[in-house]
Each structure stands twice: as structure tokens, then as C-alpha cells.
Amino acid sequence: MIKLENIHRNFQVGDQTVHALDDINLSIQDGEYVSIMGPSGSGKSTLLNLLGLLDPPTSGTYVLNNTSVTELNEDQLAALRNKNIGFVFQTFHLIPRLTAEENIELPLVLAGIEEKNRKEQVNEALVAMDLIDRASHKPDQLSGGQRQRVAIARATITKPSILLADEPTGNLDQKSGLNVIEKLEQLNNTGITLIVVTHDADLGARSVRSIRMLDGRIESDDNPGLA
């Protein structure tokens, strides 16, 4: 479960303070499917990075699965990211010299899991993402949709409770974009909390709960009552 209280995130740009997040209060239950929409610069990515423990708030409290993460140190945050958070980026962020399979197993490698114990999980993920015949291809030998599915497999390989996707279809054509969204929704159906930032109103409409942001604030939240 995610609970944000009075979250602020300020950036200092020269002598200007940018309030990227301005007093955010938000609760998200396990297994929810949430879309975050809003104009460019409204703070969607900043919110997602904060939820993903990549970026600390300037002030406020963030409780994740009953742990107050604002009090954790760098190493604890890294371990928590590895176990509990999966990220999917607009630009895929695959390592070009590694094969699909090797990209997918990276979180397990970073967690220090033995090679023989990784194979099984990597195989399951390849099957789930329809990539079994692409396992040993490098990213430049894959289509955009395939690359994003590799990224999704990587994000979910440690069986995290939360999957964060920042414009996951932004670099894809409509057909493969839809395919990627279906994969994400499939994962949500198995119980993972799915939070998707998107520009696309059609995609936004597919989610159970839709949040609109404006100028670092939550402008509307069509289902806050779940909190």
C-alpha cells in the first residue's frame, strides 16, 4: 500500500524554486490500476520517480507497505527498489550490449541471486511476454514493442508489488502500444499495483482510477474513496 502525506518536491533552478510537487496527498491500495494524466511539466514523472524511491521528497511522508521510506538510507532504498518496485520507461533503457535474456535477469543479478536460480524465472518472464524466440537477441535486433516487453519482463522479474510505467507507449505505434498496455494490464490482473503515466486519453480511460495533475497538484482523482 502507498500513502503520501503533504508531499512537496522542489527544484532549485538558479534563484527560482520550481514546485514540481506541491502538497500531494494520495493513497493507493495494493492491486489498483491507476493512470496519471496531465499536461507536460505538471509533475507526473516527478511523482512517479518519488513513488519509485528514485527521488526523495523535499518534505512530507511516504509510507510504503507500512514502512516510512523517507527515513531509509540509500542502501535500504536500493534494496527496496530491487524487491518492491518495477520501472518501465518511455525510452526502454535496455543495455545494448546485453541480450534480451541478460537484460531481463539484471535485477536478479544485482540482488546477488545465483545463476542457476535465475534461469527458471527468466524463462517464465520470456514466455509471459511472448519473447521466448527472442531471448538471445540484442536490443537493436528487436522491434519497439519487443523492446518494451523486455523492459516489462525486467521490471517484474523480482515479483515487485508495484509496477510504475512512465509513458510506456510514447515511443510505440498504436498496435504495439496496445499490446504493451495489455501486457501491463495482464500483470495487474495477477495482483500487481499498476501506475501508468500517459498522455493518451484512450489509454487513460482504460484504468480503474484516473488522476489528473496540474502544476504539481492533483487536480482530480476519480476514485479517491478507495483510500
Binding site: 542502501d75 527498489r81 530491487n82 533503457h93 539484471l106 544485482l110
Partner: peptide, 11 residues
């Protein structure tokens, strides 16, 4: 990316 996947500073 490695950090987002849970690599510590030490790693």
C-alpha cells in the same frame, strides 16, 4: 538504470 533496478552505490 542500474540504480533504478536496485543497484546500491557500492555495487
Amino acid at each position: 538504470l542500474l540504480k533504478s533496478l536496485g543497484a546500491s552505490a557500492r555495487a
